[in-house]
Write a protein that binds this DNA or RNA. Structure first.
Lengths: 132, 132
DNA sequence: ATTGACGTTCCAGTGACTGGAACCCTTATA
DNA sequence: TATAAGGGTTCCAGTCACTGGAACGTCAAT
């Protein structure tokens, strides 16, 4: 199967698949006589694994770990769970940061008339002297 | 004032300040006879504006817009409000994405024993065939 | 034989810094 | 006065995860 079909089936862009190959996340597939990458069902399965894991926000490095655990019969589910929980912690941290930004911004937006005049509490806040 | 002191007062790293100068976000400050950057109070004020705006998640490009509005006496608060609201929308989108990832991941983590055995619902989910 | 839709490689750019090398300036001390 | 420490300077490269684009090759159908 050509890269285009593999891409369609895995919901990755062909460019992305080549990139993953170039950084060693996935193995180089077979090639046709003409030099085209030739993907089999197992390759597409791996590609989908990667696409789903990336879609859940795992970094490429984490996906590499998950893939290697997936292919390791002696893995422990504790290892997989640890990676996943660390990732959830990461997400929690990001969400808290966004939440705090949003609270401040929402407050400022409510203060601002948003009309033709230049007076603006948002700019006033950004320009205010340091706290401590 | 040297870059180190300006950095301390604005809570930016010296490297970051030089970077902002190199991309045109802030103006090049005066130089001493020895070639050191020499910051005044107004420069530090701008630096703090930038630091605070970046801390609220505005992109460097957005900070540039905000700075130019700040320095424009004919600005309208509507323009500032529009940028801010667009940024809040951005944050909302990111938060929703993170929320959805987190829901899925939390569910999977709860399913996983996290023990010495290899059976793992997390990997099973990542490896499951495509939906549609 | 030619067209068009695919495929190939390689280089460069994105955003927002950050690390590091090689070097210069300033100030305090022996 | 020499020197050492702790600033500062520039410039290049690396990060992360792609993405765009150029220049070219392959394949299937007309």
């Amino acid at each position: 199967m050509n890269i285009g079909d593999a891409a369609a089936q895995s919901e990755l862009a062909p460019k992305t698949i080549r990139y993953y190959e170039s950084v060693g996340l996935i193995q180089s597939p077979a090639r046709t006589a003409g030099g085209y990458r030739d993907y089999g069902e197992a390759d597409v399965q791996t590609l989908r694994f990667v696409a789903r894991a990336r879609g859940l926000g795992f970094s490429v490095a984490q996906v590499a770990e998950l893939l290697s655990l997936y292919n390791d019969r002696d893995r422990t589910s504790a290892d997989v769970k640890a990676i996943t929980m660390a990732h959830i912690d990461d997400i929690d941290r990001k969400m808290a940061e966004l939440e705090s930004m949003k609270n401040t911004l929402s407050h400022l937006v409510h203060m601002c008339h948003g009309d033709d005049r230049p007076d603006c509490p948002i700019l006033d806040d950004l320009a205010k002297p340091a706290d401590h």
